[in-house]
Design a protein around this nucleic acid. Sequence first.
DNA 1: TAGACGTGGAG
DNA 2: TCTCCAAGTCT
Length: 302
Amino acid sequence: MTSPPRSALVDPVDPEVLHERIGAWFDDHARSLPWRDDPRPWPVMVSELMLQQTPVVRVLPVFEAWMERWPTPAALAAEPVGEAVRAWGRLGYPRRAQRLHAAAVAITAEHGGEVPGTYEELIALPGVGDYTAAAIASFAFSRRHVVLDTNVRRVFVRVLEGRQYPHTSVTKAERDLATTLMPGEGADLDAHRWAAATMELGALVCTARSPQCAACPVADVCRWHQAGHPEHDGPARKGQAWAGTDRQCRGRLLAVLRESADPVPKADLDRAWDDAAQRERCLDSLLDDGLVTLTDSGQFTL
DNA sequence: TAGACGTGGAG
DNA sequence: TCTCCAAGTCT
């Protein structure tokens, strides 16, 4: 029995080393966050929806106000969806507020008012996709799931593949690899803590723009670091157009409604965007989406 | 599966 | 300034 030659290929990264180093790093550097320090299901769920494509610092104040006002799914479900959209404030992607409200209604009607604890039940809720279902099941119910968010994916692709950024969508190979990396049952590091730790490392150290490799617990085994931080090659990563888009127009319209406690006349919306055709199209789409409501008196409101 | 979907801060 | 990016989901 001879061991395979090691010279031709790069040594495989030992998962045990990753678990030990990243777990220890997390013990020392994890941020104190309300939904992390007291990981009850509803707060965890609310935070996860708010954190989709949105930085922690912007979520914090809105989260606190939200939990104060709606401490349970039933409390949120009892109010009109427009109130949820209003309370969402400037977090962006207001349909998330709408979906969170719809999820609260479903939880109240179908789960006795308690956030369900399995991945299957969770992903069936509005606004809850693969990542969020795995995150809630992991963080609020200590279940074992592969949690693949943008942070985890970036950490893995750098450490293990030596590339700067992950692909646009999650591949099967990527998911299989992440599954292999998950600590075994009964391991010192729980799977849910591993998920939180890798996310945190990506959020604080292995960031997209300016990674802090000097502070990274696994820099010495990271292939991207060893390779001298090669930049992303291949097709340019898609940027998000903004100025003049329907998204910007919809945002302006919604802002007007958000800032008014009462329904507003059409004239108020007309002042929010110059291009009349685009404005009408966006207002129609907001009405279709249920984000905006036309009152009996012909005014507009959330 | 690519594109739509908000917002604001960092580099 | 302007581009890029932030704990994605849905169609």
